[in-house]
């Protein structure tokens, strides 16, 4: 039979902690929707903890550390989206030629990060939280070869802090095991289609340099040593007592 008296938390604390985990799920849902809408430039101000904190955005092959570095990555994503839209306008003047840069912004890329399987731990002191999601995603960023859809299989592993009553991202790992061209097996060598002249300008596009380029997670290949999921969040009292999804600079 259910015990209705919690050994640690009062009824009000139980409610507050449930609302916290719901808000964190909502936050990550909004993050994913922003990416679908190609509004990456809004992500930092809307969802991150801000410049005074030790923020860190981590990918398979490196990480951005500090507010300026994280923000610069998202702004670059916006620049790239804008470049793709302009290249498509050049290629399809009949359909897009009469539209200005703002009107065409976002045409082309489509990136979906479905957030599934949340395991969320709210710290005992309610000042921080950790969450792990599985993400079987799909994206088309438009490449030198033109539009090309990919499947991804990977994870979002996130540390949050409670900032003035609102949950904010402190560290975010977006790491994939698989980033595979749709219609091809990720268990076999993949042939990337040839570049197209109308998209050659993308070859010159560069994201900001990582704070450190380092292999955080090798992408899957049949010669990769077995690699499990990022560490599952565990109950903890205060953030200093648990592990971090951020990266400590060497």
């Amino acid at each position: 039979m259910t015990s209705y008296t919690h050994p640690t938390y009062s009824t009000e604390q139980l409610v507050e902690r449930w609302e916290s985990q719901r808000e964190i799920k909502n936050l990550m849902g909004k993050y994913a929707n922003c990416v679908i809408l190609n509004r990456e430039d809004e992500l930092f101000d809307a969802f991150w903890a801000g410049g005074e904190n030790d923020v860190c955005l981590v990918f398979n092959d490196g990480y951005y550390k500090g507010a300026e570095a994280v923000r610069s990555y998202y702004m670059a994503e916006r620049e790239r989206n804008a470049l793709v839209s302009k290249l498509l306008r050049d290629r399809f003047p009949e359909q897009l030629g009469g539209k200005n840069d703002d009107e065409i912004y976002g045409i082309g890329p489509f990136k979906v990060n479905p957030m599934a399987c949340p395991v969320i731990e709210i710290a005992g002191d309610n000042a921080s939280a950790k969450g792990l999601w599985y993400c079987q995603g799909a994206y088309n960023k438009v490449e030198e070869c033109g539009p090309l859809a990919h499947w991804t299989w990977g994870f979002f592993a996130v540390d949050f802090i409670n900032k003035d009553g609102a949950w904010r991202i402190l560290h975010l790992q977006q790491v994939n095991d698989v980033d595979s061209i749709c219609g091809m097996s990720w268990g076999r060598p993949q042939k990337i289609p040839s570049p197209l002249p109308e998209f050659m300008a993308l070859a010159d596009f560069r994201y900001p340099a990582y704070t450190e380029s380092v292999t955080i997670r090798e992408q899957y290949n049949p010669r990769r040593p077995f690699t499990g999921a990022p560490r599952i969040p565990e109950p903890y009292e205060t953030f200093s007592e648990t592990f971090s999804y951020g990266i400590e600079e060497v």
Binding site: F92, V112, A138, N140, G146, P147, A149, C182, G183, P193
Partner: peptide
Amino acid sequence: PDILTRLDALNWAADDYERL
């Protein structure tokens, strides 16, 4: 509806560009 494709022989983005 956003993405409509077939398991697992098609490429929904490249195929659309091909149609265009």
